[in-house]
Simulated assay, not measured.
Amino acid sequence: MAVSEEVLEHALDLFRDLGRIGTGRMFSGVALYVEEDVMFAMISSSDVIYMKTDPQVQGQFEAAGSEPFWYTRGGDRKQVTSLMSLPDSAMDDPEDAVIWARLSLGPARAAAEKKRAEKARKAARKARQAG
């Protein structure tokens, strides 16, 4: 099942104050990016908006009633606590949604930096092997 166009447009509207937002595929949903490669949120194929978290901010999401992203593989339910649902209070309130998005930017930037560093290591390793 794909993300509905209506939910994608709603999410882009909720987070418009963050600036230019890019999109890309993630799992069976859509990832939302700022600053080119900083994935701060995703929309699942069930049209739920999930925000990037880490152990430092996860508790704040849980306290607001957020649930972790999960999927099923091989009959087993896998939980991804680095993605927590956008609190219900923010679903129709762009100001509140942006507050949660800004909270997600720290973990999102850290994850993007880690990914960039890994790409750089792989490129350097490949260059050494080629040279």
Score class of each variant (00 low, 15 high):
17 D>P: 06
47 D>N: 11
57 V>G: 02
48 V>C: 11
85 S>K: 07
87 P>W: 03
119 K>S: 12
112 A>H: 08
58 Q>T: 02
30 V>E: 01
89 S>W: 03
98 V>M: 06
33 Y>H: 10
24 G>L: 08
99 I>A: 05
7 V>L: 13
75 G>S: 15
103 L>V: 14
68 P>A: 14
79 Q>K: 09
3 V>Q: 05
113 E>C: 09
52 K>R: 15
87 P>Q: 04
45 S>M: 05
95 E>C: 03
34 V>F: 01
80 V>H: 08
30 V>M: 02
40 F>H: 13
20 R>Y: 04
60 Q>V: 00
67 E>M: 08
98 V>S: 06
26 M>E: 07
24 G>V: 07
82 S>A: 11
121 R>K: 15
49 I>Y: 00
90 A>E: 00
86 L>W: 04
6 E>H: 09
62 E>C: 00
29 G>K: 01
48 V>Q: 13
17 D>V: 00
85 S>N: 06
107 P>K: 08
107 P>N: 12
40 F>W: 12
2 A>Q: 14
104 S>M: 06
13 D>R: 13
120 A>Q: 14
84 M>K: 10
124 A>H: 09
90 A>S: 00
24 G>R: 12
60 Q>M: 01
47 D>P: 02
130 A>F: 06
109 R>I: 11
3 V>W: 08
107 P>L: 10
30 V>K: 01
83 L>T: 02
87 P>T: 07
91 M>Y: 02
120 A>L: 13
117 A>Q: 15
41 A>Q: 05
96 D>N: 01
90 A>K: 02
65 G>R: 13
72 T>R: 10
33 Y>N: 11
33 Y>R: 11
31 A>T: 09
22 G>Q: 05
120 A>I: 08
40 F>E: 04
128 R>I: 03
58 Q>S: 07
56 Q>A: 15
124 A>Y: 08
113 E>K: 13
113 E>M: 12
40 F>N: 09
28 S>K: 13
17 D>G: 08
13 D>L: 06
88 D>P: 02
26 M>T: 15
114 K>E: 15
98 V>C: 09
67 E>Y: 07
43 I>L: 13
130 A>H: 11
43 I>A: 02
100 W>G: 04
65 G>N: 11
129 Q>M: 04
74 G>W: 01
126 K>C: 03
76 D>S: 14
114 K>M: 12
123 A>G: 06
130 A>R: 14
94 P>Y: 12
98 V>K: 06
83 L>A: 10
12 L>S: 09
34 V>L: 04
86 L>Q: 04
35 E>R: 14
97 A>N: 14
73 R>N: 12
76 D>A: 15
44 S>R: 05
41 A>M: 05
3 V>M: 07
85 S>Y: 07
62 E>N: 01
52 K>P: 05
11 A>N: 13
104 S>C: 10
7 V>A: 12
123 A>E: 14
102 R>D: 06
54 D>S: 13
131 G>M: 14
117 A>M: 11
101 A>W: 07
44 S>A: 10
110 A>E: 09
59 G>V: 14
16 R>T: 04
17 D>K: 14
118 E>M: 11
78 K>V: 10
15 F>C: 02
1 M>D: 09
90 A>L: 00
83 L>V: 05
128 R>M: 04
57 V>Q: 03
